[in-house]
Nucleic acid binder design. Structure first.
Lengths: 342, 342
DNA sequence: TTGAAAGCGCTACCAA
DNA sequence: TTGGTAGCGCTTTCAA
């Protein structure tokens, strides 16, 4: 009766008639193994169905062969986030090919967030972190540095960083969007900004103001926390103004969708009486009425690029910044020439 | 100069003046350690800031101290999934307290899905799997069993299972929903079913038919794959029928939201000319117009319960099924008395 | 090019 | 109640 224990490297070595040290060299593609031995070893390994134990390997090499992603979200805003899912898909597509895994943590507040980072590195569960939702002066960068961890950021931190950054130019996308609105005849365009402690919220607002200035557009600013609730509330305030804007640009798509709902609720003719645009390139923008004009934002591309950069950093000890192709306008039905004089 | 190497169990043992075996016993709360020794050991451990290395521990105990969740999604339907994010939050809340982590994988198709399960167990990266999106005769159950893995299912597989199941009774929720519609005066109610290879799609449809029958409601069935695209298409077909239903119930919320958009697009008065309901209790249903009537569905509760059950199974070798509280109706503005005769 | 042996940081067993 | 020791399954010297 053959006991079917999971085969170890010793089994492979015995079966191939070599030492286990040599098996290790051969299977990791290191030089200094004769072709004959290499073949025998590979044959034995596949025949036995051997796969190295990740934890034994990790113990010897002091690696975890996994990457960490910790996401802090209010339970209420999390669900609506169109970026997240496709991003993880992109991460996985490169991680899987490298035999590594993603350790995901969803935390409700900053304290638990910090504790989670500490735990993940002190328990040595991950080799590095993917840093999404960058804050304006993000404490996680200093934290991870002080813990001796590695990371890659999505966006380049204004406060400087010892880690590589993946970046995407939104400027040209915002430019295209505002030019699109200007060409349609809009002169007064509101910007519903997101949480300004987050870096991309500030960047998007600043760029909006610059471009609007150049195009001679008047800008009205509303500030929110990126949640649909506050997006809806901002919309109500804007629409009830005497100098009501003819178009509203939202810093993310969930707020834009909530803005569309408010428009319907108030009986506005969309997009004639009010044009609406988002910035996330979300898929859900295709299933609202009118379909949402937005900026394309390839989350899977972010996932692939950031993962590759982090793996490079971990394995080569060094990695360059990665610029993604610029975001571009996706013009759909929620923007049109204004039917009222502004 | 003190070399700040990460402290190991040997450092703790030396500092407490005991053997490392005793440290292991003490820190794991095992019996057979004197109070005095226990105190010295704990003091030394906290002073040195020692945390056990998860991989060394795992190598000795043959455990990974992590759970696997692999999600198969079309890139297009994934983003819209309101269940996922809150579910992971629930998982994390119990996992973190147990010093364990979640390994997440998002895969595009069945082949990669199967390969991922195989890889995760053969590399010994996880101690068990959380099985969401149960199929009607789900091959993953047999797969995991044959690999010698463990799992817990969300929902009870009709084909039987060696694993514990977390269940929630949707019957009463569907009953409440249809009674609600009947009371409003609807007599012809459509059901836009989801992918019928998925267990909950079938269950929901079957239950709808039973209750409609009891209430004397006429049912029109449309079949989809759960995507907003097909939800929208089904809505168009239903609305253009001679015997147009006065209300449509969708098997998930993203389709219901897409249905609302179609209603607007066709210039229907919602909800007077068409009532709409979902089944996911999604948050986004609060930000569409009209706000979406749906069934409440506590994804975080699913996350907590399934994780606890899986940990019990792994640690005690046995775990009972867990019934969640039944889903209940969330009546919002998208359902109202029909203004046209049916 | 290959083998032998030490070690990664823990747990678990057996004596004492 | 404690210490010593032998693994867990790999990688990595160091000799041969």
């Amino acid at each position: 009766m053959t006991m079917t224990r999971k085969p170890t490297i010793d089994d492979v070595a015995r079966s191939a008639g070599v030492s286990k040290g040599l098996v290790s060299l051969a299977l990791n593609g290191r030089p200094g193994v004769s072709a004959a031995a290499r073949d025998r070893i590979h044959a034995a390994a596949t025949e036995l169905g051997w796969r190295p134990s990740a934890r034994a390997r990790g113990l010897a090499t002091r690696r975890a062969y996994s990457l960490g992603l910790v996401v802090r979200r209010e339970p209420s805003t999390f669900e609506a986030d169109p970026f997240f899912a496709a991003y993880v898909g992109g991460v996985e597509s490169v991680l899987g090919a490298h035999g590594q895994v993603l350790v995901l943590s969803v935390v409700p507040d900053r304290d638990i967030e910090e504790a989670t980072y500490r735990r993940l590195v002190s328990d040595q569960r991950v080799d590095g972190f993917l840093l999404t939702d960058l804050l304006d002066n993000d404490p996680r960068i200093e934290l991870i540095k002080s813990l001796g961890g590695r990371a890659v950021t999505l966006g380049r931190p204004h406060g400087g960083t010892p880690f590589p950054a993946v970046t995407r130019d939104y400027d040209s996308g915002i430019e295209q969007l505002l030019e699109h609105l200007a060409e349609l005849g809009h002169r007064r365009v509101a910007h519903v900004a997101g949480d300004e402690s987050m870096q991309h919220a500030r960047t998007r607002l600043r760029r909006h103001l610059e471009v609007a200035d150049r195009l001679g557009l008047e800008t009205i600013i509303e500030r929110t926390d990126f949640s649909p609730e506050q997006g809806a509330a901002a919309t109500r305030r804007l629409v009830s103004r005497a100098d009501r804007p003819t178009a509203i640009v939202y810093a993310n798509d969930p707020m834009a969708v909530a803005g569309i709902a408010v428009g319907h609720e108030l009986g506005l003719d969309l997009p004639g009486e009010l044009s609406i645009a988002g910035m996330d390139g979300s898929d859900m923008g295709r299933f609202v009425y009118p379909t949402l004009t937005t900026l394309d934002n390839d989350p899977a591309g972010w996932g692939r690029a950031s993962t590759q950069a982090l793996l490079d950093l971990i394995e080569q000890g060094q990695a360059d910044d990665v610029p993604l192709p610029p975001a571009a306008l996706i013009a759909r039905a929620s923007t049109a020439p204004p039917t009222r004089a502004s």
